[in-house]
Amino acid sequence: MILTLTPNPSVDHTLEVDDLVRGEVLRVRATRAQAGGKGVNVARALLGAGVDARAVLPVGGGGGAELTTLLGDLPRVTVPIEGETRGNVAVTEPDGTTTKLNAAGPTLSSTEIRTLLQALEDELAKDPDWVVASGSLPAGAPDDLYVRVAELAASYGVPLALDTSGAPLGAAARAGSVELLKPNLEELADLVGHTPTTVGAVTEAAREVLAKGNGAALITLGGHGALYVGLEEVSWARGPRVRTRSTVGAGDCALAGFLAHEGTPEERLRQAVAWGTAAVSLPGTTLPGPGDVTTDGVTSTNDPDPQWRIDKL
Rank of each mutant, 00 (worst) to 15 (best):
A43D: 01
E82M: 08
A30E: 13
V131D: 00
A217I: 10
V42S: 03
V77E: 11
S281Y: 07
T69Y: 09
G251R: 00
D127V: 11
L210V: 02
E82R: 12
T264N: 11
D52L: 09
E204S: 15
V91P: 01
V56E: 00
A139V: 11
S109Q: 10
E262M: 11
S155Y: 08
E121V: 12
K212F: 15
T198Y: 01
T295G: 02
D311L: 13
E121R: 15
G37H: 01
T98N: 07
S165K: 08
L74Q: 10
D311P: 08
S281F: 07
A30F: 07
A45Y: 03
L108H: 02
L117D: 12
A141W: 03
G37M: 01
G23A: 06
A141C: 14
C253K: 02
A274G: 09
A279G: 12
P290K: 13
A173G: 10
F258C: 12
D311N: 12
P290Q: 14
G23H: 11
T203N: 07
T220I: 11
T111G: 15
G251M: 03
V149Y: 02
G223D: 06
H13V: 13
A125E: 15
L169E: 02
L137W: 01
T68P: 07
G193Q: 05
G37I: 01
T98F: 06
A104C: 08
P58R: 01
N102T: 12
R86D: 06
L108P: 00
G64C: 09
G39T: 03
L231D: 15
T69F: 09
G83Q: 02
L181K: 00
L117N: 09
W130S: 02
V91S: 05
S10H: 04
R268I: 06
Q118R: 14
L108R: 05
A45L: 09
S155N: 12
T277E: 07
R270C: 13
R114H: 13
V209T: 06
D129Q: 14
G200D: 10
P75K: 07
K126E: 15
L255I: 10
K38Q: 09
A237T: 03
A125R: 15
A206W: 00
N8C: 09
L137D: 02
D19H: 14
G60H: 03
V91G: 02
D129W: 10
A189L: 04
A171M: 12
L46M: 10
P183K: 03
S136Y: 00
T301F: 11
G83P: 01
L169R: 00
E204F: 05
V11P: 00
A55L: 06
G284W: 02
P168V: 06
G37F: 00
A237I: 04
T115H: 14
E151A: 14
L231I: 12
S136D: 03
A119V: 04
P290D: 14
L160M: 14
